[in-house]
């Protein structure tokens, strides 16, 4: 009897401990779903602030970015694929900015998982990344985003009331910049 009760007690504790702890998700945000709840620091750089349509300082949430769709690249300065893909992602940014239909509607940001501000800065400088990059030095956001491998791209459609929906959630490099932008534009009802 005593042994049985002890097992039950252990089992109960086991269930408590194995359940998802706060701030953890089972996997990456699914298409049709929502982003986990987190904030990023408002960039200090004025041009980046303007690009994102943010003001002041402190923290913001991705759906607060002034855009129809935000593409979030989960990367790491230390990831060889992200390094290799950097020129293509830059190209995607340039194509968006050069396209009157997409410009101002689709915005790009990157989250450097396990990267300090210094390390994100190294990546930005090395590859002349023209869009804002944010550090995640303690892997906090990486955990929330399902500990995906890198690079990983998440498309987030933002509604006028700042509600949002994930429209793309996929691992790996672009097949082609054009195809990627086409997919995003269509899912954002821009084309």
């Amino acid at each position: 009897m005593m042994r049985r009760m002890l097992w039950l007690a252990l089992l109960a504790w086991g269930m408590i401990l194995c359940g998802p702890a706060d701030g953890r998700s089972a996997g990456p945000p699914p298409v049709g779903g929502k982003l986990p709840d987190f904030t990023l620091g408002v960039p200090k750089d004025a041009a980046e602030k303007t690009y994102l349509g943010l003001s002041g300082s402190g923290a913001f949430k991705i759906p607060q970015i002034r855009a129809k769709t935000v593409v979030v690249e989960i990367f790491s300065m230390y990831c060889p694929y992200c390094q290799k893909e950097a020129p293509n992602v830059n190209k995607a940014y340039e194509r968006i900015e050069a396209d009157p239909v997409l410009r101002g509607k689709i915005k790009l940001i990157g989250i450097g998982v396990g990267n300090s501000a210094f390390e994100v800065g190294v990546f930005k400088k090395k590859y002349n990344v023209p869009f804002p990059l944010f550090p995640d030095s303690d892997f906090v956001l990486h955990k929330l985003l399902g500990e995906v491998r890198t690079p990983y791209f998440i498309g987030v459609k933002i509604h006028p009331d700042e509600s949002h929906q994930v429209i793309r959630s996929r691992l790996g490099a672009f097949e082609s910049v054009e195809k990627f932008l086409d997919e995003i534009a269509k899912a954002s009802d821009l084309k």
Binding site: A21, I74, S76, Y78, C79, P80, Y81, C82, K84, V113, G114, F139, H142, K143, E147, V148, R149, T150, P151, L171, G172, A173
Partner: peptide
């Protein structure tokens, strides 16, 4: 808490 302190590259 056992923390994973890495993010794998898809490479």
């Amino acid at each position: 808490e056992v923390r994973s302190a890495f993010a794998l590259s898809d490479a």
